[in-house]
Design a protein around this nucleic acid. Structure first.
Length: 1012
RNA sequence: GCCCGGGUGGUGGAAUGGCAGACACUCAGGACUUAAAAUCCUGUGACCAGAAAUGGUCGUGCGGGUUCGACUCCCGCCCCGGGCACCA
């Protein structure tokens, strides 16, 4: 391996630590020599360290990015040194809304802005010295990449979910089951062979994992697109915060619900944080209970409800349908609403504005509900509703119960209908109170009292007034009731999942086109794999149309194609041919594009074989990196992807697994979320409306933020005792000083100011740019500080003073090697045989040689401890404590006059994953020759546990739990011996004052405890 | 409301049953310097006593418990951060 030119040094010209000179040199060296190329070496174990690849925005990198990337880089470099074949790649997630919004804003083509942003991001990342294998760089917008995104989509399109095996299977196998008669053709009395191709394709379309459906979508006018449920927060778009409306549209959906159970159960096998798993569990939302059928009086329709508390069936006193429920759609044949009100219908059960008939009442109510926004519906939980005029029969006791419509029942959950048990559900209770409905207790808090526990009693207890289950505790009553329900055939045990199918199309330009065509017969046929990639047409005008039509509707010529179908008619694929080709039929392309998440669903697989033109990844390569241990070994990224990217890619991975393309059940075995980095601590001084200053201790703790008249942020609160409105503003830092433990105004030392950290944001002006930090302190210091701030997963505030601290550490290390200016010569010494000499050449005096030997002897045990601690800390991702340990060791070297080479060598080897440039530079110097291998190729040092402890221990002695002295004992001393010498100790004797310890405890190496 | 995570000096944090506050930041004092910066050394949880070395008391959100010994384990509460939420 070639080596960069060594700087010329001699004893009269000691170099200062200059991060810029050495960092650029080593970055070029690593890149030029492909030092970090990943090789699938079958003779060594693999380790896959993955970063969530960034969105190359126009803003450039912020300090949050290097946090996770440094952590993963440390692990990657460490694992390489331990002999693993390491995969550590980087790429760009460049399709999607933010890139397109930015392109529209700056009026440039998204391809151009993406190219520019990517090169900026790449050079910023390279300036941080990350050990990525840049040969594997990928970009989701590259047609050679998205051809495989499209290919995987075709696999989803080609897959149906076989409930009996719980796995996805090729659609051709389903067609074969229909053809052979092993499976009945749904909704159809004819046999498969009697159906024409169009009919067959339509039936198969209903089974595919990728399908089209008319659904009420989240339409976001502000963005001009629909959004997935996961992208809507509190009725607003996650990107941009625009309002979102419900609208029916025909859209592509992915059948993620088929995988609910496996997505949920798979979480148990993963080393993810409990909170992250919980978020996914909540999102998937498993609940167990029963589906119960209710007869509707005088009609044939059955009203199905899902309940998690079938044990309360005897307490059902009415039913409620969601306003959107099909059984109360007056335009439908099966509408259950009778033409007139039943006798004795209370006036309050009718809609006040339209009491004439049940249909008019329900319609008026539905109209009123439709006019309410998601927000209003969520915030106002007071109960509204109308009686439908229809009744159902409670199957357990044949009681006639009224059916209502109310918006407290959601169409999107369960069956869109509920059985109401007002005695044991707060919501039903409120509704029953308002509408004067009966209430019957069926659960008691105590087994010995039938009426224990205040209503509504929502907890578990003991069944009462319920003939089949009386006396049973809720936990037993539920399964018994389910058994009863099933035996009597009015219901089934059922597990319900909250998760909905994934809405997979977007009315945007900057995304992957769907690789399929729509035929004139109304069916949709996938493109043949050879047709991929289907390139995004190069539109000049890519802006939203202003209607619900996607931008690709402007690509008129692109969308119109002629195709030939190949293969069996039911599962035919399309080839695009020139117009007029014999047998060709006209077709049109899909105008929607895939959502941002498509490309990131599988990118970790493309890294493994990034330039393969014939497969998304060669199978042997995939097996090497993903099979043993299964999946990515460490995945680091932000928690904001908890239910989006991380759920979607798990789903795709499971489909690919079922289809035999990947060898692990889960893509990401271990995952860590780095904590948010907040801005530097800020001060806030509070004053009243008349300008009187108020001390922080007088300010009530409830704070809210607003933008002040001058455009700067203000904090609003109230006076703790007077309740007066107070406004907080940031005083100039120079006007603040510290008085004792408080920060106060210099001009008014009696006025305390608040000090805290806020999230970095452009509007607050507290954003730290990594480029600036590197310019001032170098990449090594930035890397070190980001890791030194605190535990990786924790939220923590930025501190420029803190960067100075690690910067000083590197300076001290440098001086320990190259000497201080006063010394004017390197301090490192080497032992040749039995003679110590200066590393740079030159003999030592007898006194210096003696000191060198003493230092070497003294450092043996600390060095072993150092290696052990740093090794263990990297293994548990406790980087801040690893750095502390290296600082301590370095401080130890600082006190020495001469420094044995062995000690520095060990230290820089351990430091290399954290601060690779300075470590490489020092290593090159220590090796004493210009042509050395990269330090990253030097194996990780080992340690000996026996040498990690001192030969003698200073052990504290407690008497009644209080430290009363200490004794020195040999490390290998037996308990008896230690206790003996403790009792013999003069100081202990004195403290004992003749009392006889009734209990003596020796914790080896830690503590002696005497109890008197 | 439900579910997670967390509360330790002026600040970031360390210690996961065994000497609380490692390592840093900040601040103060000293050395070097004509001076400053940089660097090096010393001190820096609070309170009390002492001229000082030093000694004592308290101290890990609050209250209880287990233990020879608790930041650490258990029970109850308070506060902060995050997620979900009329989810049947």
């Amino acid at each position: 391996m070639a080596s960069p030119d060594r700087e010329i040094k001699d004893s009269n010209n000691m170099p200062q630590y200059n991060p810029h000179a050495i960092e650029e040199k080593w970055q070029q060296f690593w890149l030029k020599n492909k030092v970090f190329a990943s090789v699938a070496d079958p003779t060594s174990p693999k380790f896959y360290v993955l970063d969530m690849f960034p969105y190359p925005s126009g803003e450039g990198l912020h300090v949050g990015h290097p946090e996770g990337y440094t952590a993963s880089d440390i692990v990657a470099r460490y694992k390489r040194a331990c002999g693993f074949s390491v995969m550590h790649p980087m790429g760009w997630d460049a399709f999607g809304l933010p890139a397109e919004q930015y392109a529209i804003k700056t009026d440039t083509h998204p391809a151009a802005t993406t190219r520019k942003n990517v090169s900026r991001f790449r050079s910023q990342l390279q300036a941080l010295g990350f050990s990525y294998d840049w040969e594997r760089e990928i970009n989701t917008t590259d047609p050679e990449y998205y051809r495989w995104t499209q290919w995987i989509f075709l696999q989803l399109f080609d897959t149906w979910f076989d409930e009996s095996s719980g796995h996805g299977r090729p659609i051709a196998e389903l067609a074969a089951e229909f053809a052979s008669g092993r499976r009945a053709v749904p909704g159809c009395t004819q046999s498969w062979h009697e159906l024409d191709a169009r009919h067959q394709r339509e039936i198969l379309a209903g089974f595919r994992l990728a399908y089209q459906a008319d659904v009420a979508v989240n339409w976001c006018p502000g963005l001009g697109t629909v959004l997935a449920n996961e992208e809507v927060i509190d009725g607003k778009s996650e990107v941009g915060g625009f309002p979102v409306e419900r609208r029916p549209m025909r859209q592509w959906m992915l059948r993620i619900t088929a995988y609910s159970r496996r997505l949920l159960d798979g979480l148990d096998t993963l080393e993810w944080s409990e909170s992250l798993k919980m978020m996914q569990r909540n999102w998937i939302g498993r609940s167990e209970g029963a589906l119960v059928h209710f007869q509707i009086t005088g009609r044939t329709e059955i009203l199905d409800v899902f309940t998690t508390r079938p044990d309360t069936l005897y307490g059902v006193s009415y039913m409620v349908l969601a306003p959107e429920h099909p059984l109360v759609n007056v335009d439908e044949k099966n509408c259950i609403i009778p033409p007139t009100w039943p006798e004795h219908t209370p006036a309050g059960w009718k809609y006040a504005g339209a009491p004439e008939s049940p249909a008019l009442s329900v319609q008026a109510y539905q109209k009123w509900v439709a006019g309410r926004s998601e927000r209003q519906r969520q915030e106002d939980t007071s109960k509204t509703g109308v009686f439908t005029g229809a009744y159902a029969i409670n199957p357990v006791n044949q009681q006639r119960i009224a059916i209502f419509v109310s918006d407290y029942v959601l169409m999107g959950y369960g069956t869109g209908a509920i059985m109401a048990v007002p005695a044991h559900d707060r919501r039903d209770f409120d509704f029953a109170r308002k509408f004067g409905l009966p209430m019957e207790r069926v659960v008691s808090a105590r087994s010995d009292l039938p009426e224990a526990g205040e209503l509504p009693f929502e907890e578990t207890g003991y069944a009462v007034h319920s003939p089949w289950i009386n006396g049973l505790a809720t936990e037993q009553a539920i399964p018994v009731m389910i058994q009863q329900v099933e035996e009597r055939r009015f219901g089934l045990g059922r597990t319900h999942y909250k998760i909905r199918d994934w809405l997979f199309s977007r009315q945007r330009y900057w995304g992957e086109p769907f690789p399929l065509v729509h035929l004139e017969d109304g069916t949709t046929v996938p493109l043949a794999p050879e047709e991929l990639p289907l390139r995004l047409p190069d539109l000049v005008d890519f802006k939203p149309t202003g209607t619900m039509d996607p931008p690709l509707s402007k690509a008129v010529d692109w969308a119109k194609v002629w195709v030939l179908l190949e293969g069996p008619p039911a599962t035919a694929v399309a080839r695009v041919v020139p117009p007029g080709t014999p047998g060709a039929m006209p077709a049109r392309r899909e105008l929607n594009t895939m959502p941002q998440w498509a490309g990131s669903c599988w990118y970790y697989l493309r890294y493994l074989d990034p330039r393969n033109p014939t497969a998304f990844c060669q199978p042997e390569t995939e097996r090497y990196w993903m099979k043993q241990p299964p999946g990515v070994d460490l995945y680091i990224g932000g928690v904001e992807h908890a239910v989006l990217h991380l759920l979607y890619s798990r789903f795709w991975h499971k489909v690919l697994f079922d289809r035999g393309y990947v060898s692990s059940q889960e893509p990401f075995r271990k995952l860590v979320n780095q904590g948010l980095i907040l801005g530097e601590a800020e001060y806030t001084a509070f004053s009243t409306s008349t300008g009187d200053l108020v001390s922080w201790s007088e300010v009530a703790p409830e704070l809210s933020t607003r933008t002040g008249a001058d455009g700067r942020p203000e904090i609003v609160s109230r006076h703790k005792s007077t309740g007066e409105l107070l406004v907080g503003r940031a005083p100039a830092p120079a006007t603040i000083e510290k008085r004792g433990s408080q920060y106060v105004l210099k001009s008014r030392p009696d006025i305390e100011v608040d000090a805290r950290s806020y999230k970095m944001s452009k509007s607050r002006g507290n954003v730290i740019n990594p480029d600036d930090v590197i310019a001032k302190y170098g990449a090594d210091s930035l890397r070190l500080f980001e890791m030194f701030m605190g535990p990786l997963e924790q939220v923590k505030p930025w501190s420029t003073a803190g960067v100075e601290g690690v910067y000083r550490f590197l300076h001290r290390l440098w001086r320990n090697v190259f000497g201080t200016e006063e010394e004017n010569q390197p301090r490192v010494v080497v032992k040749d045989g039995s003679t110590w000499r200066l590393l740079a050449g030159g003999a030592l005096t007898a006194e210096q040689a003696r000191k060198a030997q003493a230092a070497a002897d003294e450092l043996v045990r600390p060095m072993h401890r150092l290696v052990r601690k740093v090794t263990q800390d990297i293994e548990r991702l406790s980087f801040n404590t690893a750095i502390s340990t290296m600082m301590e060791f370095n401080n130890m070297l600082t006190r020495l006059e001469v420094v044995p080479r062995e000690a520095v060598l060990t230290l820089v080897r351990l430091l290399e994953p954290f601060a690779p440039h300075v470590a490489e530079e020092i290593y090159q110097h220590l090796s004493g020759t210009a042509s050395v291998e990269s330090l990253s190729r030097v194996p990780w040092p080992t340690y000996d546990d026996a040498l990690c402890v001192e030969a003698r221990w200073e052990i504290p002695v407690q008497i009644n739990g209080k430290v009363s002295g200490r004794v020195s004992v040999p490390a290998d001393a037996a308990e008896d011996h230690v206790l003996q010498s403790v009792l013999a100790d003069a100081q202990i004797q004195e403290k004992l004052a003749g009392r006889n310890p009734r209990k003596k405890i020796y914790v080896k190496g830690r503590m002696v405890s005497l109890v008197v």
